[in-house]
């Protein structure tokens, strides 16, 4: 099989904790099997700077919390055939969305003024601006598949990826739930 016949896959983590990506790595030796079928074109695991065009599958971890996240989401949706919401933050907002009942100003006040030992300083450009609420991906763009879990366990990730790579729609053989 030549290199360009591989499935072009990307992964990204936005407003999340990287736990889903850690769980991805927990596939251990099965990663070798996955690697034979896919070319990882963009990911925190590799060093590509710009999100490429013509991506077949993107696993997106994290909620949409900042203007930068939102810009990336729209670009990735445009460049990706199958967009997968990867983990509870991407599917529901999860822990990331727990800030949503407070204003951004009051959160910044708590994080950068009330609880710091050093002279207080608010984050400014080029740090992305927080949106008023952290929201799941599908509230902005159509999402093709949802993987629940905080984090989704490695067996579930493996099952869903191998089913999708084989051109099948994943069923419920490996149970999936929130939390």
């Amino acid at each position: 099989m030549t290199e360009n016949k591989k499935i072009r896959m990307a992964t990204i983590w936005l407003d999340g904790c990287s736990g889903c990506h850690m769980s991805f790595l927990d596939m251990d030796e099965r990663l070798i099997e996955i690697a034979q079928k896919v070319e990882l074109v963009y990911s925190p695991y590799v060093d590509t700077k710009e999100f490429p065009e013509n991506v077949d599958v993107t696993l997106m971890e994290g909620a949409i919390g900042s203007d930068h996240d939102l810009e990336l989401l729209h670009k990735i949706r445009k460049n990706t055939k199958t967009l997968i919401a990867f983990g509870d933050c991407a599917v529901t907002g999860n822990v990331t969305a727990m800030r949503n009942t407070f204003t951004v100003e009051s959160i910044f006040q708590r994080a950068y003024v009330e609880t710091v030992d050093t002279p207080p300083k608010m984050p400014a450009a080029p740090v992305p601006t927080l949106l008023p609420k952290a929201k799941p991906l599908h509230e902005y763009v159509p999402v093709d598949f949802f993987i629940q879990g905080c984090p989704p366990n490695a067996d579930l990730i493996y099952y869903i990826l191998t089913e999708l790579l084989a051109g099948r729609k994943p069923g419920t053989e490996v149970p999936m739930r929130f939390g």
Binding site: T92, N100, T101, P136, H138, E139, F146
Partner: peptide, 11 residues
């Protein structure tokens, strides 16, 4: 698998 309506995030 996901919630189709927007979350309300009530206080």
């Amino acid at each position: 698998d996901h919630v189709h309506v927007p979350y309300l995030f009530p206080k």
